[in-house]
Design a protein around this nucleic acid. Structure first.
Lengths: 121, 121
DNA sequence: ACTTTTGTATTATATGGTATAATACAAGCA
DNA sequence: TGCTTGTATTATACCATATAATACAAAAGT
C-alpha cells in the first residue's frame, strides 16, 4: 500500500496515517494477518520521524485495528476479534456527520450509495 | 438550548460548541432565522472566554451554518442557503467512519436506523 | 554467542493550536 | 449620547505535535 501525507494539512500526520490504514483495510487492500511496514521503514518512506509512525501504530493498536508484537512488528488484526469491539463512539461521530449531510440537503439515497460502496467487499 | 462543555475532553472547547449547535440544528431545536446567544452571554453561561465562543461562531459562519451580523449578532442560516452547499468533505469523513463501522461488524441495518433517526424531522 | 531488527522509552527542542485576560474599536440601535 | 453587537489586539500560558539523537529490551537470524 502507498501512503501519502500532507504536511500542510490541519490533520496531524499520525492521524493521516491512521486514517489511510483504516481506509485501506476497508477496501481490503490490507488483509487480516498482513504485516505493516516497520516503524523505521515507513518513517523513511514518507520522510517523517519514527515516533510519529509509532504514535499512529499505537493508536491503531489501542483502537483494536492492529496488533503489535516486538518480534514481528505490526500486523492487521483478525477479522473475528475486530468484530467484537464497541462502536458507541462511532455512532456519536456518525450522528454529527449525518446532521451535517441532512442540513446541507444530501438525500438519503446518496448516503445509501456511499454505504453500498464501502460495504461492498 | 442548553450547552455543555467538558474541559477535560480531547476535543477543543470551540469544537464542542460548534458540534452541539449543529446537532441541535439537526434536531430542529434551533430553527432557521433563530438568534443564537450573544458571544458575551454564552461565554458567561458556560464560563469560557468570549473569544472561544467567537471562534466557534466564526467556524460555523465559514461552514455556512449561521450568519453573523454586527447589529443582530449570530443567527441560524436559512434552510434554502444551507442546502446549496458543497458536501465533498463530508463524504470523505463518512467514508472513513463507514470503513470503521464495517470493520467492527456494524450491520447496514443499524446504519439505516441511525440515518432514519437523524433524517426523521 | 553475536549481530541485527523489532518496538519503545527518554530527553531535549521547536512550533503551532487552544484558551485566557484585559482592553479597545467600529457599527448599529434606542 | 450611551448601549450592545462582533471583532481586533496584545500578552501570556499550556499542551499537542513533530523532530532529533540516543538507548534499551526482546526476539530472530546467522
Amino acid at each position: 500500500m502507498l501512503l501519502k501525507v500532507s504536511f500542510e494539512s490541519l490533520k496531524p500526520i499520525y492521524q493521516q496515517i491512521r486514517d489511510q490504514i483504516i481506509l485501506a483495510m476497508g477496501k481490503e487492500e490490507l488483509l487480516p494477518g498482513e504485516d505493516l511496514p516497520t516503524v523505521r521503514q515507513l518513517a523513511k518512506d514518507i520522510d517523517v520521524n519514527p515516533m510519529t509512525i509509532n504514535k499512529a501504530y499505537n493508536q491503531l493498536k489501542d483502537q483494536g485495528y492492529i496488533v503489535i508484537d516486538r518480534r514481528h512488528g505490526a500486523r492487521i488484526q483478525d477479522f473475528d476479534r475486530l468484530k467484537q469491539q464497541k462502536t458507541e463512539h462511532l455512532v456519536e461521530e456518525l450522528e454529527l456527520i449525518l446532521s451535517e449531510t441532512k442540513l446541507k440537503g444530501m438525500p438519503k439515497e446518496e448516503l445509501s450509495e456511499i454505504i453500498e460502496k464501502i460495504y461492498r467487499n
